[in-house]
Design a protein around this nucleic acid. Structure first.
Lengths: 228, 228
DNA sequence: ACTATAATATGATAATTATCACTTTTTTTT
DNA sequence: AAAAAAAAGTGATAATTATCATATTATAGT
């Protein structure tokens, strides 16, 4: 069992503002877990009662819509925290989180970290800062969902995925996403997403290696995303 | 000039967690202002450097999209704080705020309230809680924008407006919104919004008094919003 | 390795929504 | 009060996207 004060993952999230003592305390009461691709970390309606620190892997955060589609609102990766809202508000989660790859996560119980939130202003300010940033991103996404066409959204999504997850060794965007996942991110029917991807491929803007996508012409994608 | 410790508006926002001393300090350095309907409170790209407390009136928070439409992401009213993000992160604002009615607001400079954020955990936790709630609402809105039809979104928006702003004396929803405003909230063309409103009126689900809208059949609206 | 299932892809068509053009009504300006 | 401008409303049509059906390919299970 690894120790929080020695884990490099904390450098990427608000836990870096906890001191050695605090980290040791948390290390003593956290639980580590391996999650298989496709399994839930938590589901909508659950009381999370703590926060998950992602040690490895990627997960999708989503909400089942009334029409039966599973809208993906975020993809989070190694180094990110998820579930922070449960620290603040003892409500059930409005979202679900599912492993998009095999994952290693640590769960820190709410009552253990809540004191740090109250006692350590650097920590609480960083949680606040991270949440403010999430809120800003969400607002921008609302505007895009409302005002951009599906094609624009796809282009933008591909660019964002590339920015966030980088390239794997074969040059493709370094995250495994089905066509259905992609359609659930941009908010369209699976067939529509497939068609648009196909068009982009035909136009030599992207190419496929299996299901993986490699961007060939980033500038063209940017133009499409911007509406030109 | 009114005093913060005596102002009833603070009961509706995080300022209620400041003690008397803190409130007196803030009272001494805040500035009050009247804003005419249609005028900006702040605009996208501005460094806000403080937080606005709404003493009276309603404002719309929006972002200009690349296609020239002004997507409204929130409507805020008396008692709410706006611009809190500038406390946390010294970036320019990604959104604009315009007065939807004549307003009275107080501006509290960032450096005056930042100490409270660091020193008063009850206050900072409430700011965090409010932001978490905003984030949750934004996430739900993303899902709706992605998955619901324009008609559903209109129905839901009318219900939400009624819930949030209540009824005026003549029974209509207590906020002045043009048809263009409504279209900018649900994310559609103005003509489309007008057509759908017209249909709802023909179906006796809503009625108009001038431009104001009165809900006649709330249950029908709920069914439409839910997709039935 | 084989089979079954799921995902991807494609064609056709239906539904939804946007755009364009114009008229009517309301609000603002003079 | 009259004129101008803006907003609301309507009709027609175009564009976008969803749905349905089917075929092909990839993946999972045995």
């Amino acid at each position: 069992m690894s120790k929080c004060d020695q884990c490099i993952v904390k450098q990427f999230n608000s836990l870096k503002f906890l001191n050695r003592e605090e980290l040791i305390r948390i290390s003593g009461c956290k639980t580590s877990k391996y999650i298989k691709k496709g399994e839930p970390i938590f589901e909508e309606g659950e009381r999370i009662n703590g926060v998950y620190c992602i040690k490895d892997g990627i997960c999708k955060v989503s909400k089942m819509s009334e029409n039966g589609k599973n809208q993906i609102v975020n993809l989070v990766q190694k180094g990110d925290l998820i579930g922070e809202r449960s620290l603040i508000s003892d409500e059930v989660s409005n979202l679900s989180a599912y492993a998009q790859s095999d994952m290693e996560i640590c769960f820190i119980p709410r009552e253990e970290i809540l004191k740090d939130l109250e006692k350590n202003p650097a920590f609480s300010l960083d949680v606040l800062k991270k949440m403010a940033n999430s809120l800003k991103n969400s607002e921008n996404l609302i505007v895009d969902m409302a005002q951009k066409s599906v094609k624009q959204r796809l282009a933008e999504t591909l660019l964002n995925l590339h920015e966030k997850f980088g390239k794997s060794e074969d040059g493709t965007i370094n995250i495994q996403l089905s066509r259905e996942d992609i359609s659930n991110i941009i908010g369209t029917a699976t067939e529509s997403a497939i068609r648009l991807l196909s068009t982009l491929k035909k136009d030599k803007i992207i190419t496929f290696k299996g299901k993986d996508i490699e961007i060939l012409d980033k500038k063209a994608l940017e133009r499409i995303a911007a509406g030109f």
